[in-house]
Nucleic acid binder design. Structure first.
Lengths: 234, 234
DNA sequence: TTCATAGTTCGATCATAACCGAAGCATCGA
DNA sequence: TCGATGCTTCGGTTATGATCGAACTATGAA
C-alpha cells in the first residue's frame, strides 16, 4: 500500500470549527492571546486552551510567553499556504462563514496572506510581473506548485524600489514563491520577496493593515503606485 | 466579525484516517474504484461508500461510472496542491505511514478487459494511435469521459489490418470507446473496434488467453507486431 | 433466465473528542 | 502580602460521526 506522510492528524486539527476559526484569524501572520482566540473560536477559555495545546503539539502554531499573556501565531509560511489552499477549496464548495458582508469585497481586493499581499490586486500584479518578464514562471506537471524565479531585469526592478535583494538572498527562506489565492484561485507572489514588497508598502505609508483583520488598506499614493505597477508604467 | 471561507468542513473531510488514505493514494491523479479505495483506507466497502459520497459532496473527488465500477479521482489540481501542502506539514511533524504490497506483473502488462485488450501495452498503443491521429480524442471539461473517433487515416489503418469496419459500423455498439485502465489508470481502446483488434490478434495466433485468468500471452510474432504498432513502424 | 460482482442505503452500536464547571497555577500591580 | 487577571488541568457529560451487518439495486457473465 503506501509509504508517506500521514495527513489525517494535521487535517483533523484544522477540521474542528473552533480551531479553524483560530487558524483563520491567525493567517494574517499576527500573534494573538489565548483569550482573544477563545472569543474568535466562540468557545470558553478552557476549551480554547485545550485546542491551542493541540495546535502547538501539531506544529501548526508556536507560542510566545510574555508575562501572564501567551501569544500564539502560525508556525511558518507553510502553514499559511496550507490554510490558503483550504480556503480556495472551501470557497469553491460554497462554504462561507458569512454571506458577503461589507468587509468581504475589501478582503477580496487586498489582504494579508501571512506576511505578503494577497487578493485581486496582488494577483493582477503577479500576472503583470510575469508578462513583463520581471518574474520567470515554470509550470510543473500537475500545475500545483509553480516555481518562480527573478530575472536579471527583475533584479534591477526591485533594486530600484529600494529592496535589498542581497540581504534577502542570505536568508534561508526562498526568495520567490507562488501562492495560490483563495479568492481568485490564481497565483500571487509569496516568499521573501513577497514579504519585502509588502513591507516596502508599509514603510512608505503606501498601505496599512486594519487592526484585527486581514484587510490591507491602500493610501491614495499607494493606490496610484500599485496601479502603476500593475499597468507597467513605473 | 468572521468573514471568508470556512475551512473546517473541508479539513474535517481530510481529517478522517480512512478518507486521508484514500485521498493520498489518489494524489497521483489516477482513478481508483470504490473497492480498491476501501482496501486502501482499511475499511469495509460500506464504510468506504459513505466516505466517498462525502468526498464527492465536498467537491474533493469526482466519480466516473463505467459499467459496474465507479472510478474516483481528485476533482482538480487544487485538491492535489492542498494535499501536498498537508503532506509537507505532516512530514514536518513526524507523522508517517508505512506498508507495502505486491501485484501480478503479467496481469499489469496485458490482460482482457471484457472483450478487448488492457494493460500497459494497450495503454501505450492507445496513446500512440492518438498521436498518430489514427484516433481522434476530444476531451471533456472535467477530463472524465473522453470521446474517441476514428479518423479517415484511421479507417485505412484498420482496413489494412483486415478489420471489417463496415460490419462493425452496422452494430449497435459504439465503434470506439475509451476505457480507463485498471492498472495504469489511463485510457485504452474499447468498443467494437477494441474487441475487433483483440480478436484479430487471437485469429492470427498473435495472442492467446490464459485459461482461468485474465492474462493475455503474446506469441513471439505477437510481441513483435504489437511493439511495431506502438513504435509506429507498421 | 440465473448467478456473481460492484456498490449503496439503512439501522444500530460504539468510541472519540468537544465542551464547560471547578479548581489550580502563574504573573502582575499595589 | 493580597487580590486580580491570564491561562491550564481535571473530571464528567454529551454529541457527533465512524463503523459494520444486512438488505437492496445495478451491471456483467454464462
Amino acid at each position: 500500500m503506501k509509504v508517506g506522510p500521514d495527513i489525517a492528524p494535521i487535517a483533523a486539527l484544522v477540521g474542528d470549527p473552533a480551531r479553524a476559526s483560530m487558524l483563520s484569524v491567525l493567517s494574517n501572520g499576527r500573534a494573538l492571546t489565548a483569550t482573544e482566540l477563545a472569543q474568535e473560536g466562540g468557545v470558553t477559555i478552557q476549551t480554547a486552551s485545550s485546542h491551542l495545546s493541540k495546535l502547538v503539539a501539531g506544529n501548526l502554531l508556536v507560542v510566545n510567553k510574555q508575562g501572564r499573556h501567551r501569544y500564539y501565531r502560525l508556525k511558518g509560511p507553510e502553514v499559511a499556504a496550507m490554510l490558503e489552499s483550504l480556503m480556495g477549496l472551501a470557497a469553491d464548495a460554497g462554504h462561507m462563514r458569512v454571506r458577503t458582508g461589507p468587509k468581504d469585497p475589501a478582503l477580496r481586493r487586498a489582504r494579508v496572506c501571512y506576511d505578503h499581499l494577497a487578493g485581486d490586486l496582488s494577483v493582477d500584479l503577479f500576472d503583470r510581473l510575469v508578462t513583463r518578464k520581471i518574474l520567470r514562471l515554470s509550470k510543473t506537471d500537475n500545475g500545483a506548485d509553480d516555481s518562480v524565479m527573478l530575472s536579471g531585469k527583475g533584479r534591477a526592478y526591485f533594486a530600484d524600489l529600494g529592496i535589498d535583494l542581497e540581504a534577502l538572498a542570505g536568508k534561508r527562506r526562498p526568495l520567490c514563491k507562488a501562492c495560490l489565492d483563495w479568492s481568485v484561485r490564481r497565483n500571487h507572489l509569496a516568499g521573501g520577496l513577497g514579504a519585502a514588497l509588502l513591507n516596502h508598502f508599509y514603510e512608505r505609508k503606501l498601505a496599512r493593515r486594519e487592526p484585527e483583520s486581514r484587510i490591507v488598506t491602500l493610501s491614495a499614493r499607494g493606490e496610484k503606485k500599485l496601479a502603476a505597477m500593475i499597468a507597467g508604467q513605473d
